[in-house]
Protein backbone atom coordinates (compact mmCIF):
# COMPACT_ATOMS: atom_id res chain seq x y z
CA UNK A 1 0.00 0.00 0.00
CA UNK A 2 1.39 3.35 -0.97
CA UNK A 3 2.25 5.75 1.84
CA UNK A 4 -0.50 8.26 2.28
CA UNK A 5 -3.58 6.17 1.65
CA UNK A 6 -5.24 5.20 4.89
CA UNK A 7 -5.24 1.53 5.92
CA UNK A 8 -7.78 2.08 8.66
CA UNK A 9 -10.36 4.75 9.14
CA UNK A 10 -12.47 4.82 12.27
CA UNK A 11 -15.45 7.17 12.26
CA UNK A 12 -17.73 7.97 15.18
CA UNK A 13 -17.06 4.66 16.92
CA UNK A 14 -19.29 4.14 19.96
CA UNK A 15 -19.85 1.31 22.36
CA UNK A 16 -22.63 1.59 24.92
CA UNK A 17 -23.19 -1.29 27.31
CA UNK A 18 -26.77 -1.50 28.53
CA UNK A 19 -27.39 -1.44 32.29
CA UNK A 20 -30.22 -3.80 33.13
CA UNK A 21 -32.18 -3.49 36.33
CA UNK A 22 -35.50 -4.33 37.84
CA UNK A 23 -37.83 -7.28 37.71
CA UNK A 24 -37.81 -7.65 33.94
CA UNK A 25 -34.18 -6.69 33.47
CA UNK A 26 -35.10 -3.73 31.36
CA UNK A 27 -32.45 -1.30 30.24
CA UNK A 28 -32.29 1.66 32.58
CA UNK A 29 -29.20 3.31 31.17
CA UNK A 30 -25.96 2.80 29.34
CA UNK A 31 -22.31 2.67 30.20
CA UNK A 32 -20.72 4.84 27.57
CA UNK A 33 -17.45 2.95 27.31
CA UNK A 34 -16.55 4.48 23.95
CA UNK A 35 -18.40 7.67 23.11
CA UNK A 36 -17.36 8.73 19.64
CA UNK A 37 -13.84 8.07 18.45
CA UNK A 38 -12.41 9.03 15.05
CA UNK A 39 -8.95 8.47 13.66
CA UNK A 40 -7.13 7.54 10.50
CA UNK A 41 -4.15 5.27 10.33
CA UNK A 42 -1.80 4.80 7.39
CA UNK A 43 -0.05 1.54 6.67
CA UNK A 44 3.12 1.13 8.69
CA UNK A 45 2.06 3.72 11.27
CA UNK A 46 1.54 3.26 14.96
CA UNK A 47 -1.21 4.95 16.89
CA UNK A 48 -0.72 5.04 20.63
CA UNK A 49 -3.93 5.17 22.64
CA UNK A 50 -3.45 6.33 26.20
CA UNK A 51 -5.73 6.82 29.17
CA UNK A 52 -6.46 5.68 32.71
CA UNK A 53 -7.93 2.22 33.21
CA UNK A 54 -11.64 2.41 32.56
CA UNK A 55 -11.33 5.14 29.92
CA UNK A 56 -12.55 2.80 27.19
CA UNK A 57 -9.30 2.36 25.33
CA UNK A 58 -9.37 -1.46 25.45
CA UNK A 59 -13.05 -1.53 24.52
CA UNK A 60 -12.21 0.75 21.60
CA UNK A 61 -9.49 -1.63 20.40
CA UNK A 62 -11.75 -4.64 20.63
CA UNK A 63 -14.62 -2.82 18.93
CA UNK A 64 -12.39 -2.11 15.95
CA UNK A 65 -11.86 -5.88 15.65
CA UNK A 66 -15.55 -6.52 16.38
CA UNK A 67 -14.62 -8.77 19.27
CA UNK A 68 -17.06 -6.45 20.95
CA UNK A 69 -19.84 -5.38 18.59
CA UNK A 70 -19.69 -1.55 18.28
CA UNK A 71 -22.95 0.30 18.97
CA UNK A 72 -22.38 2.88 16.26
CA UNK A 73 -19.77 4.09 13.84
CA UNK A 74 -17.78 2.78 10.93
CA UNK A 75 -14.49 0.92 10.84
CA UNK A 76 -13.15 1.10 7.30
CA UNK A 77 -10.25 -1.24 6.63
CA UNK A 78 -8.70 -1.04 3.15
CA UNK A 79 -11.84 0.62 1.90
CA UNK A 80 -14.23 -1.99 3.34
CA UNK A 81 -16.55 -1.23 6.23
CA UNK A 82 -15.76 -3.98 8.73
CA UNK A 83 -18.89 -3.28 10.78
CA UNK A 84 -21.08 -4.29 7.83
CA UNK A 85 -19.43 -7.67 7.17
CA UNK A 86 -21.30 -10.91 7.76
CA UNK A 87 -19.97 -13.35 10.34
CA UNK A 88 -18.13 -15.49 7.81
CA UNK A 89 -16.75 -12.47 5.94
CA UNK A 90 -15.59 -11.15 9.31
CA UNK A 91 -13.82 -14.41 10.06
CA UNK A 92 -11.93 -14.19 6.78
CA UNK A 93 -11.12 -10.56 7.53
CA UNK A 94 -9.50 -11.57 10.82
CA UNK A 95 -6.47 -12.77 8.87
CA UNK A 96 -5.74 -9.12 8.25
CA UNK A 97 -6.23 -7.73 11.74
CA UNK A 98 -4.93 -9.33 14.92
CA UNK A 99 -4.77 -8.72 18.65
CA UNK A 100 -2.08 -9.13 21.29
CA UNK A 101 -3.44 -9.42 24.82
CA UNK A 102 -2.33 -7.79 28.02
CA UNK A 103 -2.15 -10.90 30.16
CA UNK A 104 0.25 -13.45 28.68
CA UNK A 105 -0.92 -15.97 31.25
CA UNK A 106 -4.64 -15.91 30.57
CA UNK A 107 -4.42 -15.52 26.81
CA UNK A 108 -2.66 -18.83 26.11
CA UNK A 109 -4.61 -22.06 26.45
CA UNK A 110 -2.79 -23.98 29.22
CA UNK A 111 -3.78 -27.32 27.67
CA UNK A 112 -2.08 -26.66 24.35
CA UNK A 113 1.60 -26.79 23.52
CA UNK A 114 3.17 -23.76 21.93
CA UNK A 115 3.15 -25.56 18.57
CA UNK A 116 -0.57 -26.28 18.93
CA UNK A 117 -1.28 -22.67 19.88
CA UNK A 118 0.66 -21.31 16.94
CA UNK A 119 -0.73 -23.81 14.44
CA UNK A 120 -4.30 -23.07 15.43
CA UNK A 121 -4.64 -19.90 13.31
CA UNK A 122 -3.46 -21.81 10.24
CA UNK A 123 -5.82 -24.68 10.96
CA UNK A 124 -8.72 -22.27 11.36
CA UNK A 125 -8.04 -20.75 7.96
CA UNK A 126 -6.96 -24.00 6.29
CA UNK A 127 -3.51 -22.81 5.41
CA UNK A 128 -0.83 -25.30 4.46
CA UNK A 129 -0.09 -28.89 5.37
CA UNK A 130 0.89 -30.05 8.80
CA UNK A 131 4.57 -29.99 7.97
CA UNK A 132 4.47 -26.54 6.38
CA UNK A 133 2.52 -25.31 9.42
CA UNK A 134 5.21 -26.72 11.67
CA UNK A 135 7.86 -25.06 9.54
CA UNK A 136 6.03 -21.77 10.01
CA UNK A 137 5.81 -22.29 13.78
CA UNK A 138 9.56 -22.79 13.96
CA UNK A 139 10.36 -19.73 11.89
CA UNK A 140 7.89 -17.63 13.91
CA UNK A 141 9.45 -18.73 17.19
CA UNK A 142 12.83 -17.91 15.82
CA UNK A 143 11.60 -14.51 14.65
CA UNK A 144 10.23 -13.52 18.07
CA UNK A 145 13.45 -14.60 19.75
CA UNK A 146 12.48 -18.01 21.13
CA UNK A 147 14.26 -21.30 20.53
CA UNK A 148 12.22 -23.30 17.97
CA UNK A 149 12.89 -26.37 20.08
CA UNK A 150 10.46 -24.94 22.65
CA UNK A 151 7.57 -25.74 20.34
CA UNK A 152 6.55 -28.82 22.30
CA UNK A 153 6.42 -27.13 25.66
CA UNK A 154 3.38 -25.90 27.54
CA UNK A 155 2.76 -22.25 28.45
CA UNK A 156 3.43 -22.77 32.16
CA UNK A 157 7.04 -23.60 31.35
CA UNK A 158 7.70 -20.04 30.20
CA UNK A 159 8.26 -16.67 31.84
CA UNK A 160 5.86 -13.76 31.32
CA UNK A 161 8.10 -12.13 28.73
CA UNK A 162 8.50 -15.38 26.82
CA UNK A 163 4.77 -15.93 26.88
CA UNK A 164 4.17 -12.48 25.49
CA UNK A 165 6.57 -13.33 22.65
CA UNK A 166 4.43 -16.40 21.99
CA UNK A 167 1.31 -14.22 21.98
CA UNK A 168 2.98 -11.91 19.47
CA UNK A 169 4.03 -14.88 17.32
CA UNK A 170 0.42 -16.07 17.32
CA UNK A 171 -0.75 -12.68 16.11
CA UNK A 172 1.88 -12.77 13.34
CA UNK A 173 1.01 -16.27 12.12
CA UNK A 174 -1.49 -15.13 9.51
CA UNK A 175 0.62 -12.22 8.23
CA UNK A 176 -1.84 -9.54 9.32
CA UNK A 177 -1.60 -5.93 8.23
CA UNK A 178 -2.97 -4.45 11.46
CA UNK A 179 -2.20 -5.55 14.99
CA UNK A 180 -3.92 -4.11 18.02
CA UNK A 181 -1.62 -4.30 21.02
CA UNK A 182 -3.79 -4.20 24.15
CA UNK A 183 -1.36 -3.12 26.88
CA UNK A 184 1.15 -5.73 25.68
CA UNK A 185 3.81 -4.89 28.26
CA UNK A 186 1.72 -3.76 31.24
CA UNK A 187 1.92 -7.17 32.91
CA UNK A 188 5.68 -7.54 32.41
CA UNK A 189 8.66 -6.60 34.55
CA UNK A 190 10.19 -3.28 33.58
CA UNK A 191 13.42 -4.95 32.47
CA UNK A 192 11.49 -7.19 30.09
CA UNK A 193 9.21 -4.41 28.82
CA UNK A 194 11.87 -2.72 26.71
CA UNK A 195 12.91 -6.03 25.13
CA UNK A 196 9.35 -6.70 24.03
CA UNK A 197 8.94 -3.10 22.82
CA UNK A 198 12.10 -3.42 20.75
CA UNK A 199 10.84 -6.68 19.30
CA UNK A 200 7.56 -5.01 18.32
CA UNK A 201 9.51 -2.18 16.71
CA UNK A 202 11.66 -4.60 14.68
CA UNK A 203 8.68 -6.64 13.59
CA UNK A 204 6.88 -3.53 12.44
CA UNK A 205 9.78 -2.61 10.20
CA UNK A 206 10.25 -6.12 8.82
CA UNK A 207 6.63 -6.80 8.02
CA UNK A 208 5.35 -3.26 7.45
CA UNK A 209 2.85 -3.72 10.28
CA UNK A 210 0.36 -1.13 11.40
CA UNK A 211 -0.15 -0.94 15.15
CA UNK A 212 -2.74 0.41 17.49
CA UNK A 213 -0.88 0.40 20.77
CA UNK A 214 -3.14 0.71 23.80
CA UNK A 215 -1.43 1.69 27.06
CA UNK A 216 -2.08 3.51 30.31
CA UNK A 217 1.42 4.90 30.42
CA UNK A 218 2.59 7.62 28.03
CA UNK A 219 6.27 6.75 28.34
CA UNK A 220 5.63 3.23 26.99
CA UNK A 221 4.07 4.44 23.74
CA UNK A 222 6.32 7.43 23.12
CA UNK A 223 9.01 5.80 21.04
CA UNK A 224 6.94 3.32 19.16
CA UNK A 225 4.07 5.63 18.23
CA UNK A 226 3.83 7.99 15.30
CA UNK A 227 0.71 9.54 16.71
CA UNK A 228 -0.76 9.43 20.17
CA UNK A 229 -4.41 9.76 21.12
CA UNK A 230 -5.35 10.52 24.71
CA UNK A 231 -8.73 9.24 25.83
CA UNK A 232 -10.77 10.22 28.84
CA UNK A 233 -14.03 8.55 29.83
CA UNK A 234 -14.69 7.16 26.36
CA UNK A 235 -13.99 10.47 24.64
CA UNK A 236 -10.99 11.71 22.72
CA UNK A 237 -9.16 14.41 24.67
CA UNK A 238 -6.19 15.12 22.46
CA UNK A 239 -4.38 13.73 19.45
CA UNK A 240 -1.04 14.73 17.99
CA UNK A 241 2.18 13.42 16.55
CA UNK A 242 4.17 11.71 19.23
CA UNK A 243 6.95 14.28 19.65
CA UNK A 244 4.57 17.21 19.37
CA UNK A 245 2.41 15.82 22.17
CA UNK A 246 5.37 15.55 24.52
CA UNK A 247 6.68 19.02 23.62
CA UNK A 248 3.41 20.88 23.68
CA UNK A 249 0.60 19.05 25.45
CA UNK A 250 -2.54 21.16 25.18
CA UNK A 251 -5.24 19.35 27.15
CA UNK A 252 -4.96 19.71 30.94
CA UNK A 253 -5.50 15.97 31.21
CA UNK A 254 -2.56 15.26 28.88
CA UNK A 255 -0.48 17.67 30.90
CA UNK A 256 -1.37 15.80 34.07
CA UNK A 257 -0.47 12.46 32.50
CA UNK A 258 2.81 13.85 31.21
CA UNK A 259 3.77 15.25 34.57
CA UNK A 260 3.72 11.70 35.87
CA UNK A 261 6.24 10.50 33.31
CA UNK A 262 9.70 10.37 34.88
CA UNK A 263 12.37 12.47 33.18
CA UNK A 264 15.86 11.00 32.92
CA UNK A 265 17.45 14.40 33.61
CA UNK A 266 17.85 14.99 37.37
CA UNK A 267 18.17 18.77 36.93
CA UNK A 268 15.01 19.16 34.96
CA UNK A 269 12.26 20.68 37.05
CA UNK A 270 8.66 20.07 36.38
CA UNK A 271 5.64 20.54 38.48
CA UNK A 272 3.75 17.37 39.19
CA UNK A 273 0.05 17.84 38.50
CA UNK A 274 -2.00 15.64 40.74
CA UNK A 275 -5.59 15.11 39.66
CA UNK A 276 -8.21 15.49 42.34
CA UNK A 277 -11.01 13.02 42.77
CA UNK A 278 -11.76 9.74 41.10
CA UNK A 279 -12.60 8.87 37.54
CA UNK A 280 -16.36 9.47 37.23
CA UNK A 281 -18.55 6.54 36.20
CA UNK A 282 -19.02 6.22 32.45
CA UNK A 283 -22.58 5.17 33.26
CA UNK A 284 -23.26 8.66 34.49
CA UNK A 285 -20.72 10.95 32.85
CA UNK A 286 -20.47 14.58 33.96
CA UNK A 287 -22.31 17.19 31.93
CA UNK A 288 -20.35 19.34 29.53
CA UNK A 289 -16.69 18.41 29.34
CA UNK A 290 -16.30 14.96 30.91
CA UNK A 291 -13.03 16.10 32.50
CA UNK A 292 -14.34 19.22 34.24
CA UNK A 293 -14.81 17.49 37.61
CA UNK A 294 -11.07 16.96 37.92
CA UNK A 295 -9.69 19.70 35.73
CA UNK A 296 -7.42 22.24 37.47
CA UNK A 297 -8.42 24.86 34.91
CA UNK A 298 -12.14 24.22 34.75
CA UNK A 299 -14.32 27.17 33.79
CA UNK A 300 -18.06 27.67 33.93
CA UNK A 301 -18.49 26.81 30.29
CA UNK A 302 -16.87 23.42 30.88
CA UNK A 303 -19.84 22.33 33.02
CA UNK A 304 -22.36 23.37 30.43
CA UNK A 305 -20.96 22.59 27.03
CA UNK A 306 -19.09 19.66 25.69
CA UNK A 307 -15.97 20.99 23.92
CA UNK A 308 -15.76 20.30 20.21
CA UNK A 309 -12.90 18.42 18.63
CA UNK A 310 -10.81 20.97 16.82
CA UNK A 311 -7.46 21.25 15.14
CA UNK A 312 -5.55 23.86 17.13
CA UNK A 313 -2.20 23.41 15.45
CA UNK A 314 -1.43 21.53 12.25
CA UNK A 315 -2.02 17.86 12.89
CA UNK A 316 -2.75 18.52 16.55
CA UNK A 317 -6.35 18.22 17.72
CA UNK A 318 -7.83 18.73 21.14
CA UNK A 319 -11.25 18.86 22.77
CA UNK A 320 -10.95 21.65 25.32
CA UNK A 321 -12.59 25.04 25.89
CA UNK A 322 -9.20 26.63 26.57
CA UNK A 323 -8.39 26.70 22.88
Amino acid sequence: MAQGTPLLEVQGLKKYFPIKRGVFRHTVGHVRAVDGVDFTLRAGETLGVVGESGCGKSTMGRSVLRLIEPSAGNVIFEGKDVTKLSKSQMRAMRREMQLVFQDPYASLNPRNTIAQTLMEPMQIHNIGTRSSQMERVRSLLDRVGLDPEYANRYPHEFSGGQRQRIGIARALTLNPKLIILDEPVAALDVSVQSQVLNLLDDLQEDFNLTYIFVAHDLSVVRHISDRIMVMYLGNMAESADSDELFIDPLHPYTQALLSAVPIPDPDAKRERIILQGDLPSPANPPSGCPFHTRCPMAMDVCKREKPVWKEVKPNHQVACHLY
Binding site: R94, E120, I124
Partner: peptide, 14 residues
Amino acid sequence: ELEYVQAARALGAT
Protein backbone atom coordinates in the same frame (compact mmCIF):
# COMPACT_ATOMS: atom_id res chain seq x y z
CA GLU B 1 -14.93 -15.47 29.68
CA LEU B 2 -11.36 -16.73 29.56
CA GLU B 3 -9.01 -14.60 27.56
CA TYR B 4 -7.72 -17.41 25.39
CA VAL B 5 -11.26 -17.93 24.16
CA GLN B 6 -11.23 -14.29 23.09
CA ALA B 7 -7.89 -14.99 21.44
CA ALA B 8 -9.34 -17.87 19.44
CA ARG B 9 -12.23 -15.65 18.38
CA ALA B 10 -9.80 -12.96 17.30
CA LEU B 11 -8.11 -15.55 15.11
CA GLY B 12 -11.39 -16.22 13.38
CA ALA B 13 -12.36 -19.47 15.11
CA THR B 14 -16.03 -20.35 14.72
